[in-house]
Amino acid sequence: MITRVKIADIATQRVSGVLITVGLGSCIGTVFYDSKSITAGMAHVLLPDSTQFNSRKQNPMKYADTALPLMLDDMLKKGALKKNIVAKIAGGSKLFEFNTSDGKPEVSVGEKNIQAVKKTLKDMGISLVAEDVGGTFGRTMKLFVDTGKVEISSLEGYKKLF
């Protein structure tokens, strides 16, 4: 079964199939994998931090700090054990050069997202075993559920397997 993960979305799956998220720009694709129970999860987060928008009702799958704990819960319910789960991330690129009003380059959302995802993983106690982040191009991320291997590709023919 191929499951597509859209922007601000999470999917978890066991045993076989592929989880795929297409078109990661500044967004981050995070996968969790437990090789013992063969349980996989993928999240496509848009923004680093939900707390700056706490006045309104939000989709928790949009933010790094809220999406990853949700994905973990989902995997635990499917039988994964937290101590077996490792993480891999991709994305956080900078497709546009945005300037601040005084003409200096801003810290891109991509960069903020990378930092936020890493911090969230650390807070959750989940180890990051591989990453393919930054750069100036969009990525597609595929996770093969049976092996836990992640494949990254871009329009220009860039490929990476980890």
């Binding site: 922007i7 297409v22 078109g23 990661l24 720009g25 500044s26 967004c27 848009l46 923004l47 690129s93 497709l95 546009f96 050069e97 945005f98 891109s108 959302v109 991509g110 997202n113 191009f137 969009g138 990525r139 597609t140 329009l155």
Partner: peptide, 17 residues
Amino acid sequence: ILAIDMAGAILGTIFAE
């Protein structure tokens, strides 16, 4: 400003920015 890439990557970046 211009970007040439996958639609999802560009639109996602704009929404995030």
